[in-house]
Design a protein around this nucleic acid. Structure first.
Length: 351
DNA sequence: ATAGAAATAT
DNA sequence: TATATTTCTA
């Protein structure tokens, strides 16, 4: 229960960044530079050498988390943020890939507070009394006689350490607007037709995100789309602030049919779906780096009212597929920037 | 084995 | 209540 974690797009990773060679965007102030960066990025790969190795200078997130201190150089973080922002902006304006330009409504923009505002773990002040035995929990007649370790099953309590515990349940994932956006972008690319949980999950490239997470979200999203269509008008239904916050790409309109092949998509699909020479993915990697959900320590304990969403810019960070350096040989539970605080490493599922 | 939908849980 | 997760079915 009480462990909700917000996905945030920051990931300060110590870094072996060889695998991904993502864009370590350095702070750039002039548009020219930005363009250049973008070009480089698009063309081939950014040279990490040239860029500031941000991933280096940071304090091991574990420590930071452990002591509830702001990671380190906000400065750096901001720079990253800003750089990302510029980069993305450029991409948009140049009509490059997957960024839908429809960001008219909601202004997701916020400033680069990111690091100043702790990304907060959902308020959710502990389940407290909870439902006070309202509905009968109907047990599905699944009762397979497996007593299994009748044992005290899961220590509902804080599940302190328990390294031995294997599959502990994941904390509830919170779909932040950013995360959702990523989701939408990916779905848009795939086209409603190919957008199935597994694929989406893969393309989203978010560590710790499970297929189930995506499936569930997709389910909701579809319902949302449906309702939207039904009303034909935009009708910013009060419900689903989240969904409303991200414009629905046109490609995601009709189900079935070819999806977004023809000129339909807003330049989303580079036209690779066809049997062209270069088949493969239109977008090998929609996002430069794997997004790593991060668990921010709760700074202000209760008492401070945390605003709902912290929009932060896209803080795509350099990261390597290798994931974290094995810092935590075994005991370290401060899961660094893992979405889920304690226990378990994110997706270990071998596909 | 996976997607989609329904039921639960928080 | 809303929304994420789990279960169940196709």
């Amino acid at each position: 229960m009480g462990e909700e974690v917000k996905m945030s797009e920051f990931e300060v990773n110590g870094g072996d960044d060889e695998a991904t060679a993502t864009a370590n965007t350095a702070f750039v102030d002039e548009e020219d530079d930005v363009d250049q960066r973008v070009l480089e990025w698009e063309i081939g790969l950014p040279d990490c050498d040239d860029l500031t190795p941000l991933s280096q200078s940071l304090i091991p997130p574990e420590l930071a988390s452990a002591f509830s201190i702001s990671p380190e150089p906000r400065r750096t973080a901001l720079d990253v943020n800003r750089a990302s922002y510029y980069t993305l902006s450029s991409l948009r304006s140049s009509g490059a890939h997957f960024f839908t330009d429809n960001n008219n409504k909601n202004s997701n923009n916020n400033d680069l507070h990111s690091f100043n505002n702790p990304i907060v773990v959902e308020p959710e002040g502990d389940g407290s009394g909870s439902g006070s035995g309202s509905e009968p929990k109907k047990m599905r007649n699944t009762d397979v006689g497996i007593a299994e370790e009748a044992d005290s099953a899961v220590r509902t309590t804080e599940n302190s350490e328990d390294p031995s515990a294997r599959a502990l349940k994941r904390p509830r994932l919170v779909w932040t607007p950013q995360l959702h956006k990523r989701f939408v972008d990916v779905v848009a690319h795939l086209g409603i037709k190919n957008a199935v949980p597994k694929t989406i999950m893969q393309l989203m490239n978010v560590e710790g995100l499970t297929r189930e997470n995506v499936a569930s979200h997709l389910q909701k999203y579809r319902i949302y789309l449906k309702r939207m269509q039904g009303l034909s008008n935009e009708g910013p239904s009060a419900s689903d602030q989240l969904f409303a916050s991200t414009p629905v790409p046109q490609s995601l309109r009709e189900s079935g049919s070819g999806g977004c092949v023809g000129g339909g998509g807003s330049g989303l699909v580079g036209g690779s779906a066809n049997g062209n020479g270069h088949v493969g993915m239109p977008i090998p990697m929609p996002y430069g780096a794997p997004l790593v959900p991060v668990a921010m320590p709760m700074y202000g304990h209760l008492g401070m009212h945390q605003g709902g969403y912290h929009h932060q810019q896209n803080g795509y960070e350099t990261n390597s597929y290798g994931m974290q350096p094995r810092d935590w040989p075994g005991g370290n539970k401060y899961g660094s920037m893992m979405s889920y605080p304690n226990h378990m490493a994110p997706n270990d599922k071998l596909n």
